[in-house]
Simulated scan of single mutants.
Amino acid sequence: MQRSIVLLSVLALLCGVQAFSTTIDATREECFIEEGRTGQPMGLMFTVTQGGFLDIDVQIKAPDGRVVYSAERQHDGKYNFIAHTDGPYNFCFGNRMSTLTPKQVSVVVVADEADRPPQPANDKAAAPEDLSPLAETIKNFADTVKEILEEQEYMKMRERAHRNTNDSTNARVVWWSFFEVAVLVTMSLGQIYYLRKFFETKRPM
């Protein structure tokens, strides 16, 4: 059992899955950097879990300034790409459309270390044809674990967003119920007051 846990932990590290939550203040843009190498599979998953209309601007910039991906006012999304050059890739989230409300965003950045390009061959490096079936099996297992981890993180983000929406809706329903009760009580007291005034007899002086 312990060996299985250790193996899964190592594979998760090889998959390079990073998950975190961040708050983007109004009129601001925040960028996060992930190192990439030419030919390396990379990806981004995100969900706006709280704030305003639950929308955010997203942009991925390559080290050479090229815009790999760009979208505006997105609630959530998932985008995979292959790094075309070495260097830091910027994953940016913009909340410039909002003047008052900050946005909370759950983010998953994937930089697949398991599929990185092979290093230049040397005397000690094993040729691809020398790889054992066990190594191929481990690689396939790592790919499967990567897909599972990505899907789990994405489902967690979706569940968090839905939970926040439900909590917000429930809070509004509760406050609306209190408002209705207050209106009914006020109307009842007003009717009682006017009825008493209507049937009240004035005493002669």
Rank of each mutant, 00 (worst) to 15 (best):
H162E: 07
G39I: 05
D76C: 02
P88K: 09
Y79R: 11
Y89E: 05
C92M: 04
N90I: 05
V145M: 06
I138Y: 12
R160Y: 01
E129A: 15
R37V: 15
M157H: 15
E35V: 11
R116I: 10
T99P: 01
T99A: 15
P128R: 09
A111H: 09
V17N: 12
V6F: 05
D167L: 13
T38Q: 15
K197V: 03
T144P: 00
L7C: 07
V145I: 06
A62R: 06
Y193I: 09
P63Y: 10
E113T: 00
F81K: 13
A142H: 00
V174Y: 14
T22A: 12
Y154S: 13
T47V: 01
L54Y: 11
V108P: 02
K139P: 01
A114M: 02
V173W: 07
E113M: 00
H75T: 08
A83H: 06
F178L: 05
R116K: 06
T186S: 08
G87M: 15
C31W: 05
Q59R: 07
T23A: 10
F91W: 14
E35Y: 11
A83S: 07
M1I: 06
M205Q: 10
Y89A: 12
M1R: 04
G52W: 00
L14A: 05
Y89S: 13
Q18C: 06
M157L: 13
D25T: 02
E35W: 15
S168A: 14
L14K: 01
F199W: 14
F20M: 04
P102Y: 01
E34W: 04
R66M: 03
T49L: 00
R172E: 13
D130A: 15
P128A: 09
A161I: 09
P63G: 02
E136D: 05
R28N: 15
A127S: 06
K103A: 04
G94Q: 03
M1L: 09
I33P: 03
G16W: 07
M155S: 08
I138V: 14
A121S: 05
P102V: 08
T85I: 13
V109E: 04
C31V: 03
N170W: 09
R196M: 04
G51A: 11
D86C: 07
V145G: 02
S168F: 13
Q152A: 08
D86W: 02
R160F: 08
A26T: 09
C92F: 02
R73H: 04
